[in-house]
Computed example of a mutant assay.
Amino acid sequence: MDIDSLRTFLAFVDTGSFTRAAQQVCRTQSAVSMQMKKLERDIGNSLFSKQGRQLVLSNAGIQLASYAKQLIALHDEAYKQLKTSTVQVRIRLGCPDDYASSILPKVVSLLHQHINQLDLQISCASTTELKNQLDQGLLDIIIATRSPSSEEGYFLYSSSGVWVKSEQFIYDSNMTLPLAIFMRDCKFHQAAIEGLLKTERQFKIIGCCASLSSLESLVKSHLAIGAIAQVSKADSLCIINDITLPALPVIDIVLLHANHAHNPINQNTVKKIAEQFTF
Score class of each variant (00 low, 15 high):
T19Q: 07
L177K: 11
Q202E: 12
F188Y: 15
L47S: 03
H262N: 13
Q202C: 09
T128Y: 13
K69Q: 14
I62L: 14
F188V: 09
Y171R: 00
L111R: 08
V231Q: 02
S5R: 13
G44Y: 00
F12N: 06
M175Q: 15
I273A: 06
F277I: 01
S147K: 14
H112P: 01
I115L: 12
T28R: 11
S49Q: 12
T199C: 01
G16P: 09
G207T: 12
A274H: 08
K198I: 07
Q35S: 12
H257P: 12
V250M: 10
Q136R: 15
F188T: 04
E151P: 00
K233F: 02
P105C: 04
D140T: 06
S123Q: 13
S49D: 06
A60M: 03
I265Q: 02
N45Y: 01
A258Y: 04
G16L: 08
I170W: 03
P148Y: 02
R92G: 06
W163S: 02
K272A: 13
R92F: 06
S126L: 12
P148Q: 02
R53I: 10
S49L: 13
A261N: 12
P178C: 10
W163P: 00
L196V: 11
V164K: 05
M34E: 14
S232Q: 05
S123A: 14
S49H: 03
E194L: 09
C209H: 15
Q29W: 01
E194A: 02
Q35Y: 11
V250N: 09
S85Q: 15
V87K: 15
T84W: 01
I205W: 06
I193Y: 03
H114A: 05
D42P: 02
K50G: 09
N268E: 14
C26N: 15
A192Q: 04
K50A: 11
N241I: 09
P264F: 05
I115D: 06
L64F: 02
K106A: 08
D252C: 12
T84Q: 05
K204H: 14
T145F: 07
D185E: 15
N263I: 07
L74C: 05
V164L: 00
